[in-house]
Amino acid sequence: MKDLIEVRWHGRGGQGAKTAAQFLAEAALDTGKYIQAFPEYGPERSGAPIRTYTRISEKPINLHCSIANPEYVVVIDPTLVTPKVVEGLTDKGVLLVNTNEPIESVRKKTGFQGGKVACVDATKISLDTLGRPMPNMPMLGALLKVAPLVKLDVLYEKIRAKFLKKIGDEKTNANIAGVKRAYEEVNIG
């Protein structure tokens, strides 16, 4: 693994992009990594496009600016798939999108020809497992398939630690099921 891995998340206010960025960071912290997770707030409005960021490193992280050249871009909302989301994405980078469309369509819409594109229908998965459109946790599962940043088990533990008290056994397990399904179903090309 590179010394510093940077992930940029694109979502809409209320879709859990901030939580996803934080869970990834916290899971990595549990495995001894240095971490940072931070949102880029504009006016805080539900439904407004937002960016959040995760940094994971083998060394202490001094950077305190936003992430311009991420290794991974995760798009949680299908309507945000435009060339804007791949700005600065490195040629060897990975673009992961929540969509029911094929990889070719995402490449066309974003103009991203390098690296890899990964697609997963995280909204459908969350509707199936959780009963509501909350694609953030499935997107984390899919991300761990394309980016071995932490082991799935570590993420499951983090989800249990964070959710169990707050939302109970059933919903926690539904979230974990969503992570697992997205990990298995994500298409990479």
Binding site: Q22, E26, I35, Q36, A37, F38, P39, Y41, I61
Partner: peptide
């Protein structure tokens, strides 16, 4: 926000 809302 830069540190107040950043997780470390």
């Amino acid at each position: 926000f830069i540190t107040s809302h950043a997780l470390e």
